[in-house]
Write a protein that binds this DNA or RNA. Structure first.
Lengths: 197, 197
DNA sequence: CGGAATAAATCGTTGGACACGATCGTTAAA
DNA sequence: TTTAACGATCGTGTCCAACGATTTATTCCG
């Protein structure tokens, strides 16, 4: 039994849905299923009733829930003991594209300044390809990208989530006939795209 | 942070030695080092002082120790809620070689009957090669082996620990000259061996 | 009813994580 | 100074867990 499994379990229990939990955790639904299954196998107890496509906590599941909550709460408390957050000072310079910024950043910034009020935060628009050099030079500390894949050896890269790429055209546009639409189909057409790296 | 790491940490903290902890956990010393390092990296705190070849808990380490103890204690409590041990009944037939039995079994049996007083335990000496068929047929439930390697697809095999194989000879025996001694050197000599599978 | 949509389970594949053995550097004991 | 002991590190191999695709089962709706 590992913390990762408990965390997944808590998420499913909160959402009462494997699929939604997977989305929140940024993982595949099958992975959520596998983790819950591993948990149930190890404890030799079913923690969810799958009645049709409804997901409900069993009695054992409710017990596990309280234990898991207490444990994650305990780890949170412990972590805060080590990284005494309120004392974190300094500045953080982040490069983030406008498209991402407008959607995700408000909530993130709010939470961040709540947790780290002593950190001065600088946000810069992202629009070019100097990113690698900028990160290496220390001019910026952190960057968010919309990208197919990132291969920078010198910096730490973490995939946060994936977004579908959707094409939008005016009514009657010839490309609308094609379904599915491939990148190759775009050849020769003019189009606006969200930024890449 | 995962339970496996906390468990390893507790073991090192109890033994105050990476090497001995590795032995108790049946893993390589390098793996213990890696786990502790991962823990320290994640928490951004050193939990052990490595002063020369001495290993001591840091202040942070002592904090972590109490948290980790509480957590493992909590999981133990939780597990006991699900698998209500006292109600486990039935019988367990174990095949175990005398060499192992005489050394390890007393403590194991004592703990087992304490935890599962309702289970009737049958121990049988192990001496032959019908093991596979015996396990498959269900005549025995569990077996302990001294073996180089076990390849039985149909049964679950778990390596518990490893033992050094030591040769013993009378004084003046010609083989004593050879060091190191290889299995090939034994060719043509008579010797007694502990059982294998 | 019957077809479409939705959700969880299952399956086969693959990349990353982790354990291992070997080796290095350091320290303490001889 | 030598030797033994111990933890750190490195390179390698293996196994597990996450993934995408598919299947199965159920619910929704016409």
């Amino acid at each position: 039994m590992e913390f990762r499994q408990l965390n997944t379990f808590l998420c499913v229990a909160d959402e009462l849905s494997f699929t939604r939990a997977a989305q929140r955790l940024c993982m595949a639904q099958s992975s959520v299923s596998a983790q819950i299954k591993a948990l149930e196998d190890e404890l030799a107890v079913k923690v969810f009733d799958r009645i049709g496509r409804r997901v409900l906590l069993t009695d054992a599941g409710r017990k596990l829930y309280t234990y898991a909550r207490r444990m994650t709460e305990m780890t949170r408390e412990m972590r805060s003991q080590f990284s005494n957050d309120d004392y974190i000072r300094g500045s953080l310079t982040v490069r983030v594209p406008e498209t991402i910024a407008s959607i995700y950043m408000p909530g993130i910034i709010k939470a961040f300044v709540r947790d780290h009020p002593k950190v001065s935060l600088r946000m810069i628009n992202c629009s070019d390809e100097q990113l690698r050099e900028e990160l290496n030079s220390g001019r910026i500390d952190l960057a968010f990208l919309l990208s197919d894949d990132v291969h920078l050896r010198e910096v730490n890269v973490k995939r946060l989530r994936s977004e579908r790429l959707v094409g939008v055209a005016g009514p009657g546009h010839p490309l609308l006939a094609r379904s599915p639409l491939t990148l190759r189909d775009l050849d020769g057409h003019h189009f606006l795209r969200p930024l890449t790296d």
